[in-house]
Design a protein around this nucleic acid. Structure first.
Lengths: 121, 121
DNA sequence: AATTTTGTGCTACCTTCGCAGGACAAACCG
DNA sequence: CGGTTTGTCCTGCGAAGGTAGCACAAAATT
């Protein structure tokens, strides 16, 4: 499974955002420290910090200096049905040897295929 | 539905890649010209060209000067089951007011949750 | 009260990448 | 054959964003 090395703040943001929306990180649960995340993903502290800041601005996370960063109480989770479907898709795609990136490309292509999505604006 | 303006070569690549894998673009079907794509998405020609080049390197597309770019015969499509699931997920998520980006974040979070995906390497 | 933890801020540097817009060669079409 | 289409290549430019490393303030911990 091609799990590319993460290097951008946006990717880190998305990683945690997904974990929270999917319910993998529950209310009040603590995230790794900025420094830890920086070490884990081999990125600069500033980059990890930027990601956390974005999450906070989105209301997904609450930050208190010296107390760390925790999932905001009442952070909006996706409906269970959506998470279930996501799981099913992930399994099916993985079994078919399709990479995460390709799966995502398919989602984008399929998203609102009858509507006016994807079309140039 | 927040359909952000596309500006990067990577995004363009992914757009066509998804369309091909999902079967929206069939074998031999012609893609817009580089110049046309550049105009459509308001990007530089070089950027559109770069995207097409990537697609060609992936074997998804065949390019012949002056004849344009076409979907490669036998370009690997995703199994119908995967596409169906992707469609179902897109519908479900959209109905639940979840954005494409969030849906994708969920997919990434859920992808190989029991395995060693997502974890820092 | 002293120390440690943790998020934040800063500077200077460097690489990546998109842009404009022109030029070119190959192959298509009439 | 001659004009046109189309992908490719080039230069110079600028913006965006990641990096390293250190300093700082506030709150937690002891």
């Amino acid at each position: 499974m091609t799990t590319p090395v993460i290097r951008s703040a946006e990717e880190i943001t998305q990683l945690f955002r997904g974990a929270i929306r999917a319910g993998q990180l529950g209310d009040g649960e603590r995230l790794p420290t900025v420094r830890q995340t920086a070490r884990d993903f081999h990125i600069a502290q500033a980059t990890a910090a930027k990601a956390y800041k974005t999450l906070e601005q989105e209301g997904l996370v609450v930050t208190r200096t010296a107390a760390g960063t925790r999932v905001a109480p009442g952070a909006s989770r996706a409906p269970q049905a959506v998470v279930q479907l996501a799981r099913a898709l992930a399994e099916s795609a993985d079994a078919a040897q399709i990479t995460v990136d390709d799966t995502i490309a398919i989602i984008r292509a399929v998203w609102g295929a009858d509507e006016t999505a994807n079309l140039p604006g």
